[in-house]
Write a protein that binds this DNA or RNA. Structure first.
Lengths: 160, 160
DNA sequence: TTTCGTGCAAAGGTTTTGCACCGCA
DNA sequence: TGCGGTGCAAAACCTTTGCACGAAA
């Protein structure tokens, strides 16, 4: 599914709920889809949207992101750096992505396996708790970073 | 290990790093240890410390919590309610606690099983990533909350 | 016209910082 | 004296909100 199709699909979700796909919302969505792997902050989204739509205000970006979170199109997350970051939840990614956070190079990789179905079953039986969503983050170090190579394997970023 | 012993142990960790256990820090630690299960925010810690040490300033609490996080005695966490919360990491709890967050009653339960050793092994082999810590939160609903009982099973809190 | 969405500026809430002061080596 | 630690207030920071305006049904 390409970006245009995804935006169409989201447009339908908006319409059903009585919301409109304004140019501001469309460009914000485009930015999110084009940077799906990057976990952008509101400020970063704002900067990118501004390149195509300079008149947009930061408040609109916040309102759009809030709207998308309400529709479960994005998920608001916090990785401890003081800003909220937004994770797309398209195409069955629903509650199935985990994160690897490298302490050396700062990379934040998303991995797609769903490893937790057994655990969710155990939580249900042992704790009387029905899971609807989960969050799993691993902090650690890429072997390539640890081995003192000059670049992070994933991002290509220079490593301090 | 009782609270006095735990504070002694932490005092040693502080001393090794050149920090002192001031009365403010000691009372802050006591509050954290006495409310280990509660994931207090800085403001909540401040209120509780103030009861025993009214002259303390909020900034000191923030600085103490930051210091304890640096020493890995507490972990700063964010559950999406706009404030940082602090999780004690004493007595081998290290990277072994997970959370159940009930959407109905708001309870935040800590569970102690360490279910992720296998997954950490997989991450190491499949992604070339050595895990040093992890975070696993389950969002969902307690069966007792779902069944419309008037109280949450865990907290006893009234359920809307 | 009515409603929804927007931009701007102001407000709100949390956390950090600057600075003078204090106690202890 | 020197230095780490503190309290207070101000600042910084991210995010939300109030309000008037504008576009579309």
């Amino acid at each position: 599914m390409n970006i245009v199709e995804q935006i169409d699909k989201i447009n339908m979700q908006l319409t059903v709920k009585g919301y409109k796909l304004t140019p501001q919302r469309e460009i914000t969505l485009k930015v999110l889809l084009e940077n799906e792997r990057d976990h952008l902050s509101a400020e970063e989204v704002y900067m990118l949207v501004k390149q195509e739509f300079p008149e947009i205000g930061l408040a609109t970006v916040y309102r759009t992101l809030e709207l998308l979170a309400e529709l479960q199109i994005v998920q608001k997350m916090n990785f401890g750096d003081g800003v909220a970051r937004f994770d797309l939840r398209m195409e069955g990614h629903d509650h199935m992505h985990h994160h690897l956070i490298c302490k050396v190079c700062g990379a934040l990789e998303e991995i797609q396996d769903d490893w937790l179905l057994d655990l969710e079953q155990r939580v249900a039986t042992e704790y009387g708790f029905q899971v609807t969503d989960h969050r799993l983050d691993f902090t650690g170090v890429y072997h390539t970073c640890k081995n003192n190579s000059k670049q992070c394997k994933r991002t290509g970023k220079a490593v301090s």
